[in-house]
């Protein structure tokens, strides 16, 4: 099975540029691979199907049933899968040079926003801008950390953008860096944006958006509490969920609780 997975992972990348965040054609092969027979069973925590052909199973408890009939069936299924994956890989590599992806309908809105930011705030404020196609083509703009306050003020106050409603602030711990994602929407034009700010892991800090949108107040406190991102400019930066004397930031990927029982 593991060589199966490598094969699908090693398929030629379809030349994705920074243009899209959502496309992952390799993954559909991966989901098909998980099915041996049709029938919709609920997912188990392990990605492997219940009966790997090799009896070596990582779990301490019993390995599942193996009998010659099943072995043969599994082999046949594995071969069929390989054939399918190979055919797909071929089709992918052939199809890609033919048709570039159609531009997203929200691309002009993204370009307009990026243009505004570049002119009004600073030329280098925008690090990246792309359309998140999975999410209904939401424009995503990655903004440089030290320009964030000005960009935020621009997003709220500029007539064309007018994002007066901050929906959600999420902190993300990507292992190499940390991110804060702000989801904005304009109640009049119903246009939504996602703005990301990347920051490093040792001393993460993102300028607080509380002076601009009051919604950010507790959201940023929660992110500080659980992830450790500091928000200079926040009126009341202290822990909100965890007890005030807690050590550490629980939602980080490398968080080791002092007391594993808790």
């Amino acid at each position: 099975m593991s060589e199966e997975r490598d094969k699908t992972a090693g398929m030629p990348s379809s030349g994705d540029t920074v243009g899209t965040a959502g496309e992952a054609p390799k993954e559909t092969a991966g989901t098909v691979e998980g099915k041996e027979q049709s029938g919709q069973e609920q997912a188990s925590a392990n990605a492997e199907p219940a009966a790997p052909a090799a009896p070596s199973s990582a779990e301490a408890s019993a390995a599942p049933v193996v009998d010659p009939e099943r072995e043969a069936k599994l082999k046949a299924a594995a071969e069929a899968r390989e054939a399918r994956a190979a055919a797909k890989a071929k089709a992918e590599s052939e199809a890609v040079p033919e048709e570039p992806k159609a531009p997203s309908p929200k691309q002009p809105i993204l370009d307009a926003a990026v243009g505004l930011i570049r002119t009004e705030v600073a030329e280098d404020a925008v690090e990246e801008a792309y359309i998140n196609e999975l999410n209904g083509h939401m424009p995503v703009i990655v903004v440089k950390g030290d320009r964030w306050s000005e960009v935020a003020a621009l997003m709220k106050n500029h007539a064309a953008l007018g994002c007066n409603y901050l929906r959600n602030v999420t902190g993300v711990d990507c292992e190499t860096h940390m991110e804060a994602v702000y989801h904005l929407v304009s109640l009049e034009s119903k246009q939504d944006y996602a703005i990301k700010i990347k920051t490093d892991r040792e001393a993460p800090s993102v300028a607080s958006a509380t002076p601009i949108w009051a919604t950010a107040n507790w959201n940023e406190r929660e992110i500080y509490d659980l992830l450790g991102i500091n928000f200079p400019g926040h009126p009341d930066m202290r822990r909100i969920m965890m007890p005030d004397d807690w050590v550490g930031h629980p939602l980080r990927k490398d968080y080791e609780p002092l007391d594993p029982e808790v």
């Binding site: 925590a45 408890s61 599942p64 049933v65 009998d67």
Partner: peptide, 29 residues
């Protein structure tokens, strides 16, 4: 003894062990 229930349990409250079938004719656990 396919272990699916133990795997899918969101709180991991099922633990089970199996043994080989005592009947030498039949396969399985």
């Amino acid at each position: 003894v396919c272990n699916q229930c133990a795997r899918v349990c969101p709180t991991e409250c099922i633990t089970l062990t199996g043994k080989a079938n005592p009947d030498p004719e039949k396969k399985g656990k």
